[in-house]
Amino acid sequence: MTNTSSAERADARHDRQSADDGSGLVLADLRVTYGAGATALRAVDGVDLSVPRGSTLALVGESGCGKSTIAKAIVGLAPSVGGQILLGGMDVTTERGRSAAHFRRRVQMIFQDPYSSLNPRMTVAATLDEALALHTGLNRVDRRARAAELLDLVAMSGTGADKYPAEFSGGQRQRIAIARALATDPEVVIADEITSALDVSVQASILNLMREIQARTGVAVLLITHNLAVARYFSHRTAVMYLGRIVENGDESLYTAPRHPYTRALLDASPSLAAHREDRVPLAGDLPDPHDPPSGCRFRSRCPVGPLTHQDRTVCIDREPPVVDPAGLAVACHFPPEQPAGR
């Protein structure tokens, strides 16, 4: 059990809030519910996260854990949002109606599949021009110049802005989608599995590009991925999500010394180029029905250190583990390893 004094945590909260001004994205106790009543699905159930300006937070977890729902909630595509989404200290869940356009300029999203995220009937120039026309006060001539700059930023200059998406390869389309997201000069970009539809060699160039862009513009990136190697390579911090909750949040040490058994299981399951490890512990069973998550710790039905193997650990069934805050000062586990588990 991690010993975190309440004073420390309050300090962390305070730091977070004072550092917010004018920068970064903070989620506080975010809840997203689909449906209502008995069949309601709490896809995101009390999530605290923070993505300071100029940094990248990777959000990892299995499909159905709620990571894409968080993205939707932030950009306003999800229904019924509770808690706070703070952008530069301002809660956008309440002000969205009033200044939607203003807010939209500040958060943009890049989608997984570049084959479906561009309108096939609009040229690259028209796609970029639309974003610029909506969110900048530029005139037509300036918008053209800015669009050319954006294409240059994603290394697509001189490749025919008058062409349609179908005339480009997957990697090129993803660059165009990135340019569109950058058109509004956003503070936060949400990258939802942006390389998983691309070939390996193209993935590397897109990841490099995103790094360059972040270095140049200081944009905060929320990277959503199921690929732990990509998450580790690209991000400053990583949050691991399971059934609507963050179970662990940490820096690079999360990959070398995971503290939550689920993080450990994900790492074990990730295929690698190293020699086989025979010691890995496979995760039992499938993801539980998210409509009816297990009581107490949600991971207990598959946990290798929980009541499945240690029958005396009834606390996992009875009590919810601590909440992980953005500083990663807790791990949502009743029995984290005493010594950090070396790998």
Binding site: G171, S201, A204, A229, R232, Y233, S270
Partner: peptide, 23 residues
């Protein structure tokens, strides 16, 4: 191809080796 794949051991400071162009 091997160099372009980030692994859990890839150095985080250097850019990934990408292959110019397309298949």
């Amino acid at each position: 191809l091997l160099a372009a794949v980030p692994t859990l051991q890839t150095g985080r400071e250097e850019p990934l080796a990408s292959i110019p162009g397309q298949p």
